[in-house]
Simulated scan of single mutants.
Amino acid sequence: MRRDRRLEIITDTIERLIPGAVPSRITVRVAEDMPRGENTWTGSADGLAVKVFTALFGRPRTADDRSPLARAEDAKRGRDLIGELEALTTGHVDLTTAPWYPLQPGDLVHVHYEQTGELPTFGETYIVGDASGGLLSMQLLAHSLPADYEPSLVETVTGWFGSEASDDPIYDAWFEGGPQRLTVVRHGRAVHNGGAQ
């Protein structure tokens, strides 16, 4: 499954050439008129998008469920400086070129955590606020740890991505947790749904 937002934009643009069409039923036909007939290429919207993307940016990356920081750390352990820089740069570009970026006051950011050891699967929801001076806050609004979870541990495992004042409060969650674990809701609509990708 591809996660590159640039490829998604190209695919969406091609699919929207026919308003209201079902994306899985769209085919693209490119024809060259020749004296004795046509020379054609026919394919899916996704196939054309991959060809355009490859011409512009190189082959699309395949899905990687690790966070940008985890990918960079793996490359660093392997003494792959280029891979480390690519993981960090790609993570930054993916975030800062997202159509919903930057966060706005009133946005909700949900972080999903998989079960690890004795810690159950749970989620946290943060609300973004105006911290004045062009800065934003990201305050823990709620978490879904079980009600009987040990209260002294709740404070230890929740609120890691909260921020009193930051120019980019989602940055740590994006790099450490990973975009695939985040959902951003703006005006009641999911503008980034990492879990659905």
Score class of each variant (00 low, 15 high):
Y149S: 08
Y113N: 03
A72Q: 05
V111P: 00
K76L: 11
F53P: 00
Q115N: 11
R66E: 10
I82V: 15
L119Q: 09
W160C: 02
F57A: 11
T90E: 08
S152C: 13
F53L: 04
A49M: 04
G162E: 07
F175G: 00
V154R: 15
E84L: 14
G78E: 12
D172W: 07
V93Y: 12
A63M: 09
G134L: 05
L69W: 05
P68R: 06
G178T: 03
G117F: 08
L145V: 11
D64A: 11
R79E: 14
D80P: 11
Y149Q: 12
D107Y: 07
P60F: 02
G162Q: 06
S152A: 09
E118G: 05
D94Y: 07
L145E: 03
T125Y: 07
Q139V: 13
G129W: 10
G129V: 06
K76F: 06
V52P: 01
V50K: 10
T156C: 13
L108S: 09
L153N: 13
R186I: 11
W160T: 02
V157A: 03
P102W: 02
L153D: 08
R77H: 12
A72C: 14
W160Q: 03
L153S: 13
A87S: 08
V185F: 09
P60H: 06
G178P: 01
A173N: 01
D167Q: 09
T156M: 14
R181P: 01
S144Q: 09
G129H: 08
P68F: 02
P60G: 03
G106A: 15
L145Q: 04
T125F: 10
D74K: 14
R79T: 15
E176Y: 10
G78D: 13
F122R: 11
V52R: 02
E118V: 14
S137W: 05
S144D: 05
V157K: 13
G106N: 15
V93P: 07
S163N: 05
T116S: 07
H143A: 10
T183V: 08
K76C: 10
V52G: 02
L145A: 05
T183L: 04
F175S: 00
L108I: 12
A63P: 03
F122L: 09
Y101N: 02
V50M: 09
F161A: 00
Q139G: 09
L85E: 15
V93L: 10
G129E: 07
G162I: 05
Q104T: 13
T62K: 14
P60K: 09
E86V: 14
L135D: 01
E176G: 02
M138P: 00
E86Y: 15
D94C: 07
E118D: 13
F175C: 02
E118K: 13
D148A: 09
M138W: 02
H112A: 03
D168T: 02
W160A: 01
V111T: 04
S163P: 01
S163V: 06
R66S: 06
Q115S: 07
E155N: 15
R77Q: 14
P151F: 11
D148L: 09
Q180P: 02
E114Y: 12
S67Q: 07
Y126S: 01
Q104E: 14
D107I: 04
